[in-house]
Computed example of a mutant assay.
Amino acid sequence: MTFTLGPRATAAGYKLAAFDRIGSTNAEAMARAREGERGPTWFVTTEQTAGRGRRQRAWSAPRGNLASSILEVMDVSPAVAATLGFAAGLSLESALQKLSLEANMRRAGADPLKFTLKWPNDVLAERQKLAGILLEAEAVAGNRLAVVVGIGTNVIAAPEGTPTPATSLAALGVHVGAEELFTALSEAWVEFRGIWDNGRGFADIRKAWLEHAFGLGERVAINTGTATVEGTFDTIDESGCLIVRNAEGKRAAVTAGEVYFGAAASVGAA
């Protein structure tokens, strides 16, 4: 099976660059942007050897997993571009939900899987990490912004020893290929990218994201690198910051950090 865009993505003018094996789809997408590529273009592979997650952590994709990056060049500020990551999470959640429901039809009696979105950039299944999202942006000619959203999904295998326990679709009993998942993702992206609308529709994205948010109302600890913020996960605000409410009812906005929920919050706060 080969990678193909969904019909809505093709109709919307998206392009596709597929690789049998590559170092990093995000790096390739940004390199193409520097060379003049303006997209929108998907870069995909089932084997990534030098991928990166947040804070420059290694994120490899063994053959059979899905590494995908979408390049779009926009007339938006970096702060607005950052909110596109929430649309990416919703796109992947929607694609996964569709495929898992189809898998359930083939597995009579199986309970439906629940996929949730963990701030700022993870997609979870059964409280375990299934996918990570990495958004990068860089100024290009014409005073525009090249935005690359990388989405790495554990299709057949998951790493061990991660801060948040990880899983794969195969381990969850959803036996689909990376190519099938990508087609569904490219279709969902058209929908949620359209709702986001260069940031103008972030209020609707925010509302939808909160409906799928992991840990909402739970105890949370965020290690920002310089301090630890503890309290209850209250919401995300109009710019995508995580809002934490402490025991006295005061609310604090967190822009970035390592997030720990529930019992893990004690570890994260240590």
Rank of each mutant, 00 (worst) to 15 (best):
T116N: 04
L130P: 14
W119K: 11
K114E: 07
R127V: 02
A131I: 12
D111P: 11
G109K: 10
E126R: 15
A110P: 10
K129M: 02
R107N: 13
A125K: 01
L124D: 06
K114N: 03
A108K: 14
T116R: 13
I133A: 09
K118H: 04
A103H: 01
D111C: 08
E126W: 09
W119A: 06
R106T: 11
L124S: 06
G109F: 02
K129D: 04
E126T: 12
A110M: 12
N104Q: 09
L124K: 06
F115R: 09
L99E: 02
K98A: 12
E102A: 14
A131R: 07
M105I: 01
R127Y: 03
D122R: 04
A131D: 01
L134R: 07
E102S: 12
R107S: 14
K98N: 03
D122W: 02
G109N: 05
R127S: 10
A131K: 08
R127P: 00
K118L: 00
E102M: 10
A131P: 07
D111Y: 03
E102I: 02
L113N: 12
F115D: 05
N104C: 07
N104L: 05
N104R: 15
I133N: 09
L134W: 06
S100W: 03
R106L: 13
L99R: 12
N104K: 13
S100V: 03
P112C: 01
W119M: 07
A103I: 01
